[in-house]
């Protein structure tokens, strides 16, 4: 058995497909990006090594700063608008039961399975100043309905709305699963103790959902950083870079602005930012978990000690009784 399981050749052949894919599709492009990040390559012809020039320029690049700000705004939008609504809806759905529950769950998730190509075009039409749905709604409520939703002032908010709308079902579904995993006897206990529904939600559901919330928040931040497709189709990052995101910006620099080297430098920094964000979030949440776990262990020990004490007391009592 041992010999069979440590056969180097077999191990190598098992790991090879995954390793090749990793090297070819992830590692090699990153190395290439690092290399081109030090050049002034335009995408064709010859080029020179220019050292850290690209990175220096990136420090003062306003469009890149706007991209990061937009990612931050999007992450805040996800966490402060999408997630609270998603969690409340998930809690309400959990109480609903039966066909209505699966019907609503299905409806909420549908936008998620639709291609971003369709979503972006569709919202382009919804925001259309001439016959768009949104201006017609404004008119129905007595407004003038001639708002340009994608101008420099409004565009970023319009983009955020699309993204929050599109990802809602996903966040909801994960909270819903988390709530479904909560032991129902806890709810029974709460209702016996006379807790109201909102009390139960705040005191029972929310604390138990902590790990799920952490996963969801991490995913929200990462997806806010990685955002590209929707802005690429809806606004192209414009007007005037106001809806720019890092991935879209590096694409534009590399392919349409003939600054391939600079685009790659953005790519390198972009990867580093994503890595740092992931590691940092995991660290923040992990520490808390560990602290809680340690506390839990301490409490458990106290209880065990107390129990041991009470058992010895009981034994003593019994022996006294027996003697008596």
């Amino acid at each position: 058995m041992k010999k069979l399981y440590s056969n180097k050749l077999v191990i190598f052949s098992l790991i090879l497909p995954g390793l090749l894919l990793f090297i070819f599709a992830i590692l090699a492009p990153i190395c290439l990006s690092i290399y081109y990040g030090f050049t002034n390559y335009t995408g064709m012809g010859t080029y020179d090594m220019i050292g850290l020039e690209n990175y220096k320029n990136l420090l003062h690049d306003e469009a890149f700063a706007i991209s990061l700000r937009n990612s931050l705004l999007l992450a805040i939008g996800f966490i402060c608008i999408q997630h609270p609504i998603a969690m409340i809806i998930a809690a309400v759905l959990d109480k609903l039961g039966g066909r209505a529950e699966s019907f609503f769950r299905c409806v909420y998730f549908i936008p998620n399975v639709i291609s971003i190509a369709v979503i972006a075009k569709l919202w382009g039409f919804i925001y259309n100043p001439n016959f768009g749905l949104l201006n017609n709604i404004v008119k129905a409520f007595g407004g003038k309905g001639d708002i340009n939703w994608l101008d420099e002032k409004n565009a970023i908010w319009s983009v955020l709305i699309v993204l929050i709308w599109h990802g809602f079902g996903w966040g909801m579904l994960i909270y819903y699963t988390g709530i479904k995993n909560i032991d129902p006897t806890l709810y029974e206990a709460a209702s016996i103790d006379g807790a109201s529904q909102s009390q139960t939600f705040l005191r029972v559901t929310l604390p138990l959902m902590k790990p799920v919330i952490q996963v969801n928040v991490t995913m929200a931040v990462i997806s806010a950083l990685k955002q590209m497709e929707t802005v690429y189709l809806l606004t192209q990052g414009g007007p005037g870079n106001s809806t720019q995101f890092a991935a879209n910006y590096l694409y534009q620099q590399g392919f349409t602005a003939y600054r391939y080297g600079y685009g790659n430098a953005i790519g390198v920094i972009f990867i580093i930012i994503c890595l740092i964000a992931t590691v940092a979030l995991n660290k923040v949440f992990e520490d808390r978990d560990e602290v809680r776990m340690r506390k839990h262990e301490r409490d458990e020990e106290k209880r065990r000690n107390a129990m041991r004490k009470s058992v010895t007391v009981k034994n003593k009592l019994n022996s006294i009784k027996a003697v008596g």
């Binding site: 440590s6 390793l19 599709a25 391939y260 990867i271 992931t278």
Partner: peptide, 30 residues
């Protein structure tokens, strides 16, 4: 399977989850 580098290789392959896919658009095209 029993081999020394199993943990390292697994972590390395999982790193792919953190890499933003769009950062590879430019070099992969090349």
């Amino acid at each position: 399977m029993r081999w020394k580098l199993s943990g390292f290789v697994k972590t390395m392959l999982l790193m792919g989850m953190m890499i933003p896919i769009h950062a590879t658009l430019l070099p992969n095209y090349k």
